[in-house]
């Protein structure tokens, strides 16, 4: 079960930031499903939204890394 994999990851050395990935996917899918009705459109929009959220978060991460460089 995928929740068992998560549990193993939560107790292992996997950085906590990776838990954001399934959350981004789930949020994108449910949000897109509440906007559209056709399955193909839901999946396409969810993919785009996942990339947008992921890209935005990576941008913020890069900014924080840059700002904290040398500290």
């Amino acid at each position: 079960m995928w929740s068992d994999l998560f549990l193993a990851a939560a107790e292992g050395p996997l950085p906590r930031i990776w838990f954001a990935v399934p959350l981004i996917v789930v949020i994108s899918l449910v949000y897109s499903a509440s906007r559209y009705e056709a399955p193909d459109r839901i999946l396409r929009r969810a993919g785009r939204l996942s990339l947008t959220i992921g890209g935005f978060m990576l941008g913020v991460l890069a900014l924080l890394v840059a700002l904290s460089h040398g500290l």
Partner: peptide
């Protein structure tokens, strides 16, 4: 009878909830 959405919501929402409970 909106089966695709029924499955999508059930898997995503219940999956997230019970994963959180397990963690």
């Amino acid at each position: 009878r909106r089966m695709f959405k029924a499955v999508l919501y059930a898997v995503c929402i219940l999956g997230t909830f019970f994963t959180g409970m397990r963690i």
